[in-house]
C-alpha cells in the first residue's frame, strides 16, 4: 500500500472543506471494508485519505410513522441489524443485514460505505431500492437528493462526486397492503452473494390484484437493476404462483450479466429468475397478510 496523508474529519462541513481542498487526490474512507483491499492491491493509490467514519452526526436511525425512515450514511450494519425500530417496522432490512458479509464486517462497515462502493452484488442496494429509498448527498454546492435507483452508474461507480458525501438514506414507511422481501443466492455462507433479489408488492383491496411492484436484482449487471418487464407483466394482475412464475421468466430483459470465475452469465440469469419468483411470492404472502389485517413485517 502506498503511503498517504490521513485526515480525520471532525464534521461533515470539515470533511467537505478538506475534500474541496484536496480535490481528486483525496479519497473518503468510512468502514473501509472494501476500500482497504482496493488500496492494498494498488488499484487505487490516493495521496490523502479523509476518514469520515467517526462522524457521529451521520450515525443515526430515525423513524417517523408519517414520513418514514432515515438512516445516517455512517450507521454500521450491526446498528441497523440491532435497531429495534427497524426490526419491528421494516423487518426486511434486518433480515438482509443478518446475513450481510460476516459479523466482523457488519460491526465496522457502514451502510453508506456499502452503497458508495457500488459493488454490483451488494446485499444492501436492492432492498433499499425496493423500499423506494432516496440518497441524500451534500457537496460544496449544497445538498441534493437522488433516488437510490439512479444512484449507481456502473461497476464501482455512483453519482457521488469526489467533493461530495453521501449523508443519509431515507425511505417511506411501508404502505398498507404491501410486502417487501429479500433473498440472496450464494454457494458458501459468509460469502458475497452471487445474485440478490428484493421485491416490493402492493395489493389492491381485494388482497389479490397487484397495484404496484418493484423487483430489484443485484449481481446480474454492472449496477442493481429493476426487473421492469417482470413488474409490468404483473401490474393489475391477480397474483397466483403461476402468474409470478411466468412473469419471472422475463428477468433477462433487464439483466446483462457477465461470466466470471464463479459462474456463467446464463446461470446468473437462471438464479435471478428463481429469486425474483421467490421474493415476489414471499412479498405477496406478506402483503396478503397485511390486507387481512394481520401484523406484517
Amino acid at each position: 500500500m502506498k503511503d498517504f496523508e490521513y485526515i480525520r474529519a471532525r464534521s461533515v462541513d470539515h470533511a467537505l472543506e478538506v475534500l474541496a481542498e484536496k480535490g481528486e487526490s483525496a479519497v473518503k474512507i468510512a468502514g473501509g471494508q472494501s476500500l482497504l483491499n482496493i488500496l492494498k492491491q494498488g488499484l487505487m493509490a490516493p495521496d490523502c485519505l479523509v476518514d469520515i467514519k467517526g462522524l457521529e452526526e451521520l450515525d443515526f436511525i430515525e423513524s417517523n410513522p408519517g414520513t418514514g425512515f432515515r438512516i445516517g450514511a455512517l450507521t454500521t450494519h450491526a446498528s441497523i441489524l440491532d435497531s429495534e425500530v427497524l426490526q419491528s417496522s421494516c423487518g426486511v432490512l434486518a433480515s438482509m443485514e443478518r446475513h450481510l458479509a460476516t459479523v466482523q464486517v457488519r460491526n465496522w462497515g457502514t451502510i453508506g460505505g456499502n452503497l458508495c462502493m457500488a459493488d454490483p452484488s451488494s446485499d444492501a442496494a436492492p432492498v433499499l431500492i425496493a423500499l423506494g429509498s432516496t440518497a441524500h448527498i451534500r457537496g460544496p454546492e449544497g445538498a441534493r437528493e437522488v433516488p437510490l435507483g439512479e444512484f449507481f452508474l456502473g461497476y464501482y461507480e455512483t453519482v457521488v462526486q469526489p467533493g461530495e458525501l453521501l449523508t443519509e438514506i431515507s425511505f417511506p414507511a411501508i404502505p398498507p397492503a404491501t410486502g417487501v422481501s429479500y433473498e440472496k443466492f450464494r454457494n458458501v455462507e459468509g460469502d458475497a452473494p452471487i445474485v440478490v433479489s428484493s421485491a416490493f408488492v402492493s395489493l389492491e383491496k381485494d388482497g389479490r390484484t397487484l397495484s404496484d411492484a418493484r423487483v430489484v436484482l443485484g449481481g446480474v449487471a454492472s449496477t442493481p437493476v429493476r426487473a421492469t418487464a417482470v413488474e409490468d407483466a404483473l401490474k393489475g394482475v391477480k397474483l397466483t404462483p403461476a402468474a409470478v412464475e411466468s412473469a419471472s421468466g422475463l428477468v433477462a430483459e433487464s439483466t446483462s450479466p457477465i461470466p466470471d470465475v464463479v459462474c456463467s452469465a446464463e446461470y446468473r440469469n437462471k438464479i435471478a429468475r428463481v429469486l425474483a419468483k421467490r421474493t415476489l411470492l414471499s412479498a405477496f404472502e406478506e402483503a396478503k397478510a397485511a390486507v387481512g389485517g394481520k401484523k406484517h413485517r
Binding site: 474512507i29 482497504l36 485519505l49 467514519k53 460491526n107
Partner: peptide, 28 residues
C-alpha cells in the same frame, strides 16, 4: 489480509472487527 478469514479478529469498542481491515489511526 483481505478481511475474509477472521484470523485477525479483535474487539474494537466492544465489538469484533477484522484488524487487517481497519487502519491503526482509526482506532485512536
Amino acid at each position: 489480509d483481505s478481511g475474509a478469514c477472521g484470523s485477525c479478529t479483535v474487539s474494537v469498542g466492544g465489538r469484533t472487527v477484522n484488524s487487517c481491515s481497519v487502519l491503526a489511526v482509526q482506532i485512536d
